[in-house]
Design a protein around this nucleic acid. Structure first.
Length: 419
RNA sequence: GGUGGAGUCGCCUAGUGGCCGAGGGCGCACGCCUCGAAAGCGUGUGAUGGGGCAACCUAUCCGUGGGUUCAAAUCCCACCUCCACCGCCA
């Protein structure tokens, strides 16, 4: 959620951000008005309550007629306090709901919608084949690595089995990601994948993306779409020691997505699936360090992409295409030879204090007042990477060369067809 | 799933309707004492919202949410978490 104090001091910043996202900027005026009325109602309630407390006190020390008079007055006040409190709460609730619906204030993201991204960099060379390249599913079946047919039989569309070298490839890839993270000081984590409603709502995943989330009705729990959610909620309602920042976690989890509304899109293979595995970086840091931390996360993503020797580009996502928590987002997209397009492999977001404010994650230096931390996240590896690895490193006979850095983790230099 | 017990300020604990506007201890900070330190003594000690240039003032917070009452840490209801035991189970 955005900070009301910042809003009061500099409402134009939010107006500009809303416009860049292509959203309504009149919400600012509504917010300011509601905020003022709420503060007025709060003051009114507080003075009534103070009087009620002092009159109540004197009831206990008085007797006889005096006591009867005071008691009558106290009863009046009790009713008035109740009314004033209800009014203040009503306004606070309305303000709260409105504040929660406002997305984060962007930081330097290019204005516009989905297609208005800016390409920051292109890395590596797209492969050229002297044969007709096979797509990842054809390769996966040839290698005995991917079984979508049985995935569909057992669980339905957009489910799959990783078998044999497919399973080995994923384990190797994610292990390599974990190892890299550990080497630069991340705390490795294996997180819960079921979250309570409050935790899920706190991380912002029940907003506009609520229909993407699986819910277990009988237990009132949600399946996470990314370990960002449990890692963000990890320090929920805590005050961290300022000296411990930045705190970096690398979470390994399965991720679950309903993919509602994506019917007919990426239906072949394992590009868009209901369940996959991911190693995610998550960082808690001081707000003034967040932009720099964002660059670090991006650099670590690029390091991973270099290790698997994929051609890719880095894009600066446009404001209108950011999630509600993100102030800025960089995606790394690998080249997909058989579709002649780029496919998102990583995504790193700077959520500034937006996510942490809602979850009340703060830090303190010495005797100073607690301040809200900034949170950031970024992808280190996912199941989807297998798609790009298979396609880019394939050979004419259907075998796939394992990138050098990955070999020790997979235990194979080349994946050979099994049929 | 069942039964019983417990949740109070960073930690331990007092607290059975108004003297709790939460007491004490530990810890921590500052001061006194000391050549210096320890011990001892004294003072202070959280979060959040609102008001104020500020010192400060004010409201809320005793697991959470409701309720009773002029008044709730205290009484009532529901829920959550932890502990113990029983049952079931990978």
């Amino acid at each position: 959620m955005i900070d009301l104090r910042t809003l009061r001091e500099d409402p134009d910043r939010l107006r500009a951000s809303q416009r860049a996202r292509g959203e309504d900027d009149s919400v600012v005026a509504t917010l300011l008005d509601l905020d003022e009325r709420r503060r007025g109602a709060l003051t009114a309630y507080e003075s009534l309550r103070a009087e009620q407390k002092s009159v109540g006190k004197s009831v206990s020390t008085s007797s006889g007629d005096e006591r009867a008079v005071l008691l009558a007055r106290a009863k009046e006040l009790a009713a008035a306090v109740k009314g004033a409190e209800a009014e203040a709460e009503k306004l606070a609730k309305r303000l709260d709901e409105l504040v929660m619906s406002v997305p984060n204030i962007i930081e330097d993201a290019p204005p516009g919608g989905e297609d208005d991204y800016v390409v920051l960099e292109e890395v590596g060379e797209k492969p050229s084949f002297d044969f007709t390249p096979r797509d990842h599913l054809e390769l996966g079946e040839l290698l005995g690595a991917i079984d979508t047919e049985r995935g569909a039989k057992v669980s339905g569309a957009r489910f799959f089995f990783l078998t044999g070298v497919g399973a080995r490839l994923q384990l190797g890839l994610l292990n390599m990601a974990m190892q890299q993270a550990i080497e630069v000081g991340f705390t490795p984590m294996i997180t819960p994948v079921l979250l309570k409603p409050e935790a899920m709502a706190g991380t912002g995943f029940l907003g506009s993306h609520a229909s993407e989330v699986y819910r277990l009705e009988a237990d009132d729990l949600y399946l996470v779409g990314t370990s960002e959610a449990p890692m963000a909620a990890y320090h929920w309602n805590e005050i961290l020691d300022g000296g411990s920042l930045p705190r970096r976690y690398a979470g390994w989890s399965s991720c679950f997505r309903r993919e509602a509304g994506s019917y007919g899109k990426d239906t072949r293979g394992i590009i868009r699936v209901h369940q996959f595995d991911k190693v995610e970086m998550f960082s808690y840091c001081r707000p003034e360090d967040a932009a720099e931390e964002h660059q670090r996360l991006l650099a670590w993503e690029k390091e991973m992409l270099a290790k698997v020797e994929l051609p890719y580009r880095v894009i600066d996502t446009a404001a209108g295409d950011l999630g509600s928590s993100a102030a800025r987002k960089f995606d790394c997209e690998a080249w997909l030879p058989t579709q002649s397009r780029y496919l998102e492999l990583t995504s790193t977001s700077n959520c500034t204090e937006f996510q942490a404010r809602r979850l009340a994650v703060r830090y303190r230096d010495g005797e100073e007042k607690p301040r809200t931390v900034a949170t950031l996240n970024g992808t280190l590896a996912t199941t989807r990477w297998i798609v790009a690895i298979l396609e880019n490193h394939q050979q004419a006979d259907g075998s796939v060369v394992v990138p050098k850095a990955l070999r020790p983790y997979v235990g194979l230099d080349v994946l050979e067809p099994v049929k």
